[in-house]
Design a protein around this nucleic acid. Structure first.
Lengths: 230, 230
DNA sequence: TTACTTTGTGTCATAATAACGCAAAGAAGA
DNA sequence: TCTTCTTTGCGTTATTATGACACAAAGTAA
């Protein structure tokens, strides 16, 4: 067996979570107010250490459950942050993830480690402890580019939703305004391809299920290919 | 101080490297033949454990230097692989990276941990140890999507290169064929925007520096927006 | 010189996108 | 109910991006 393996002393491994919530036409992030040092009373992203037998997904879910009281959400790995001084307590590598939820479906509660848990609208996010400001910005960036090619936004809406609601979400995340009619065409074209397998010929041509935008459609994730107009 | 921090026992942290090299119009990956268990005599990606005071970049460079004898390359973080059983020796999380080099510029040598180091053309890559086959495929996928929007390919070419050489590289990485004249237009349009800040009007309109494709142009990374034709 | 390959430049047809018109359906107030 | 205002659905048109392809000039090899 490889001797390198046993003598090895390694940095700690943690995850941090950027939880996005969409509520009343505005996008927010979930932040914790810390009870302990470092950054006592400062705002940070929820996070925690990886236990021996956990997967990254499992840690993320554990943190959400114990610290915030929600579970089972859309989750994507973002990036590993490794700056040597990022945590004043010692060397910690953090593998950041971002998550999307609909705040109305959950009652958030401050876990025992936090004074407070709060949703902050994106333009009112304070300076964060550790390197969490950078993590937050990168997560937002990733979400923006992701939503342009994949329909991740559905996690943030209700079970069923209208075209207008979907558009509002896109405009909010991308921070642009989109022509209502062009957006509609994009979605219908994409959904048509998903549902029938072929391209939509002529605008009137549509699939009976197309206007429901219900659970079925949400579970079949389709390529949106919305392009950012400016 | 947070008691959670001190009592914490964590998985090991490693990096694995997918090193792409482009040589004689064909793309290859660098693989090691293992001297030690597990997977004795099997092929794997080069990798290593993260030391206490290293950044991820530094580990990657150390591995390249000691195991293969090359250094200082284009490096990008790919993904953290966390399957509990991915390493038979114990729990190891690996943060995979991929790198691009021009093999002609380096003499690769097997370090003391390996029987052999070899370039494998992409279509001749054997089954790899650990979960490295999956890592390799994901790295290739990422490289493909990256090259469509960013000019990463320059790292794989010589100091100066022709439009034809650049196109060959793109065709090779993306595994498609591209019309020579359309490719040229794309590159010239993008480069024009980079050099002048405005859009090219009319095909003849070009910038005096445009034909050099030299160091200057390489350092100013520009958006290519090549789209994959079938 | 000739034949052949490579490179530079352009055109044209098609597809994707942005911008916008208009009418029907619903909501709100008198 | 009638009017006004807003929302929603469906379309057209102009512009831009893309894919396919023609041709000539420059270079290379005999």
């Amino acid at each position: 067996m490889n001797p390198e393996f046993h003598t090895y002393k390694n940095p700690s491994l943690a995850v941090d979570l950027v939880v996005f919530g969409y509520h009343r036409q505005s996008l927010s992030v979930l932040l914790l107010n810390r009870k302990d040092a470092p950054f006592i009373d400062g705002w940070t992203l929820p996070g925690g250490f990886l236990q021996m037998e956990e997967t990254l997904q499992q840690v993320c879910n554990r943190i959400m459950r114990t610290k915030i009281g929600i579970d089972n959400l859309y989750l994507e790995q973002l990036y590993a942050f490794d700056a040597p001084q990022r945590d004043p307590r010692g060397r910690v590598i953090s593998i950041a993830h971002y998550a999307l939820i609909n705040p109305e479906r959950f009652e958030i509660v401050a876990g025992k480690m936090a004074n407070d848990v709060k949703w902050f609208p994106l333009n009112q996010v304070p300076e964060l402890g550790f390197d969490h400001t950078e993590i937050f910005h990168q997560a937002l960036q990733r979400l923006k580019s992701k939503i342009l090619s994949h329909p991740v936004g559905f996690e943030l809406l209700d079970e069923t939703f209208t075209m207008t609601e979907l558009q509002a979400l896109y405009e909010c995340i991308l921070d642009i305004s989109i022509d209502r009619r062009n957006f509609r065409r994009k979605i219908l074209d994409s959904a048509y391809i998903l549902l029938t397998g072929s391209k939509r010929e002529g605008l009137k041509n549509r699939h009976p299920d197309l206007y429901k935008f219900n659970k079925d459609l949400k579970e079949n994730r389709f390529q949106l290919n919305i392009s950012a107009q400016q």
